[in-house]
Write a protein that binds this DNA or RNA. Structure first.
Lengths: 170, 170
DNA sequence: TAAATATACTTTATATATGAAATATATGGA
DNA sequence: TCCATATATTTCATATATAAAGTATATTTA
C-alpha cells in the first residue's frame, strides 16, 4: 500500500449486501476502522520516527513497567505469539532500545525493560502519536466517543466469553 | 499464542491510566476487540479448515466478483500492499484455489478469480464463519450492534478525512 | 524426594506483511 | 508520433507473524 492512502477506496464491507447479517457487517466495519488507523499510524511512525508499530507497542508497554516485564507478559498484552516477541525484542536489544536481564525470582524468565535510548525515543513519539489519534478521531464528538468506548467494552466482554449465550453450533 | 485463549488477560489498555485521553483509550479498545476476534477466527480457520485468514479474505472478495478482479482491486479492498497480494495469490494459484488469466481490456493487469475448488471451500467456510462471528457477538443486543455499527461508520468517515477538523499539529 | 506436569522461552519452518525499486503497458499531451 | 507520466504488477530485502516442537526451570503431587 502506498503511503498516500486512497481516500474512499472500497473495502471489505463493499462485498457485503444490505441484507446480510448485522454481526458480519459489524465485524467488517470494525476491521476496516482498525486497518485504516493502523496503516496510518504505521506509515507515520516509519516516516517521522523511522520505527515500526510493533516496536512502538513494546516501548509503550514497557513504559508503565519501569522495573521490567517478562516476555510472556509482553506477548499476552500485545496479543501476539511468544515466538514473535522473542524476535521482536531480539531486534530491539540489538538496536539498543531495550535490555534484558535475568529474573531473580524465576530462572526460566527474563525481564525486559527500556534503555535510556528507548525511553527517550518513546518520550519523543508519545505526544505526536497521541496527536495523530486525536486528529484521526477529530470528526467525532466527545459523547460519541464515550458511547463508542462503552459499546466496544460490551463487545470485548462478549468476545472474551462473558457473552450471554454461546451458539449451539460452534 | 496458544489456541486456547487467556480469558481475561490484561491487554494494551491496561497500560493506559483512567485520566488518559479518551481518543487513545478508544483506539486501544478498538484494537483489542479486533485482535481478539481476529485471533479467534484465525485459529478456527486453521483447525477446522486448514486455511488462513488472508486466504479466506481473498476468497470472500472473489466470491462477489465472479468475472474476476485485478490484483490492485484486491489489495485495495483488503487494505494490504501490492506485494503482499502477489505472494498471497501466487500461493493460492499453486494450491488450486484461484486462477489468473490475462485482462483483455488492459495488458498490464491480470484477472484473478476463484476456481471450482476455491468456490467449494468458501461455500463450506462461509456459514460456519458467520456462526463464529454471531457467537462472538452473542453478548450484545441487536440495538447495541446497530448503534455500534453506526458509530463505527462515523469513526470510519472521520479517519478517512471527512472529519470535521484536521489537527493543527500533525 | 522423585516423577509428573506446568510454565517460560527459544528454535524452526513457513506464511504474511511492508516499502522501495524495477519492469511493462497505457494514456495524455506537445 | 513521441515523450512524459501514470498505472499494474513483480521483485527484492527485510520485518513481523504463526504453530509446533524443543529446552530448561518451577511447581505439584504422590
Amino acid at each position: 500500500m502506498p503511503l498516500g492512502f486512497e481516500a474512499a477506496a472500497p473495502d471489505r464491507e463493499s462485498a457485503v449486501a444490505e441484507d446480510d447479517r448485522l454481526q458480519l457487517r459489524l465485524w467488517l466495519r470494525l476491521l476496516t476502522c482498525t486497518d485504516l488507523i493502523e496503516n496510518e499510524v504505521r506509515g507515520r511512525l516509519r516516516s517521522e520516527f523511522a520505527t515500526s508499530l510493533p516496536r512502538f507497542d513494546v516501548l509503550a508497554q514497557l513504559e508503565r513497567a519501569r522495573d521490567g516485564m517478562t516476555l510472556s507478559a509482553l506477548s499476552s498484552r500485545l496479543m501476539v505469539s511468544n515466538g514473535n516477541v522473542t524476535g521482536l525484542v531480539e531486534g530491539m536489544v540489538r538496536d539498543g532500545l531495550v535490555e534484558r536481564r535475568a529474573n531473580p525470582a524465576d530462572g526460566r524468565s527474563a525481564l525486559i525493560s527500556s534503555t535510556a535510548v528507548g525511553h527517550a525515543l518513546f518520550a519523543r513519539m508519545a505526544p505526536t502519536h497521541q496527536a495523530w489519534i486525536d486528529g484521526l478521531m477529530g470528526g467525532m464528538s466527545r459523547a460519541e466517543m464515550v458511547l463508542l468506548l462503552e459499546l466496544l467494552g460490551k463487545l470485548k466482554q462478549s468476545v472474551q466469553g462473558g457473552g450471554a449465550w454461546k451458539p449451539f453450533l460452534v
